[in-house]
Design a protein around this nucleic acid. Sequence first.
DNA 1: TGTATTTATATCATCATGATATATATTGTT
DNA 2: AACAATATATATCATGATGATATAAATACA
Lengths: 181, 181
Amino acid sequence: MDTKILCLGVLTHGDASGYEIKKAFEDGPFGHIQEIGFGSIYPALAKLLKDNLVTVTKYTQEGRPDKKVYRLTATGRLFLLDALDEPTEPDKVRSDFLFRMMFAHLLSPSALEAMISERMAVLNTAIERLEQCADDGLAPASEVFINGYALAIYRAMADYIEEHRYQLVGASLVPERAVAE
Amino acid sequence: MDTKILCLGVLTHGDASGYEIKKAFEDGPFGHIQEIGFGSIYPALAKLLKDNLVTVTKYTQEGRPDKKVYRLTATGRLFLLDALDEPTEPDKVRSDFLFRMMFAHLLSPSALEAMISERMAVLNTAIERLEQCADDGLAPASEVFINGYALAIYRAMADYIEEHRYQLVGASLVPERAVAE
DNA sequence: TGTATTTATATCATCATGATATATATTGTT
DNA sequence: AACAATATATATCATGATGATATAAATACA
């Protein structure tokens, strides 16, 4: 599932520029799937254009750079559908936070507490935002499903951390006791 | 948080070869943090060695290639501690599965059902494995915390999908109804 | 007996990441 | 009103990650 397919996916929701595609993976409907950067998007769009999977229209603007709006072609739509038929790759996760928790016993209790509190703040912000857009009503079924899924996971994370954080902080305070037993 | 730091982290648990470091990120204690491949590990170990953050001992074996076992140096340990003090980067996720769910309305109901069922099977296998090693007892606090965290998330995913899968399959069966309303 | 998996390292082309450059309009703050 | 920060918009670059491939033999499994 490379950036080309991700771009084609966003373009099924309507024509878009590279900038708008990135936004779709930040706050937009694709926001909980993954992040992508300009360094991936612009080369991907160039390749898609070369292979006639998208077309482009330039809008010259005063002051700002030309806005290049891309549109899916019929070939591009078929290409996406073929990609969706291929085996689903397993989810990939990269958690800096969990890596740090592996070394809770090497951190000072205050540093550990700060990390956990910061993480809780991030999670609670995400939860609040999702709870608000849950009442929008008119979103398509897939978006409702994904927003609910993300909300369920964030809640599970926050609940678990809240309930078990003192196990970690306790272990960091009295490591010698665990060894003695 | 690059591969060098990840390798140093594993080496705090004891000397290891590149092969063993990879295993630690598959089934081992670092299994829920992220995946790394040989293509990242071997160059990272070479750089760590050059910077005197690790040492290496070669074990010549008959038939097999030399096993190169790496050991953390005092400098390496400090380097890791410094890295843990830097700001925690946000978690990164890449979900091929969720991307496909965004296009539930473009898939045949049977293909969609197959994807969801496969996903549930993967999740249930992971849950069973985690439930078994939850009874091990003698693991350090950090590993217990992370295993419990992973288990909570997998359960939340499986529960949510099980409860809401028919919303997606229903929408894929009767898309014309949603448009008409 | 034959096949698949595990042990073990290494390299390579391709792709992604994150930083940086450029330039202006808009919004927010003191 | 002046100033700073953010949003709009594209593009490139060095560095690093990914996944595939090569090599080779022991062990487990059918």
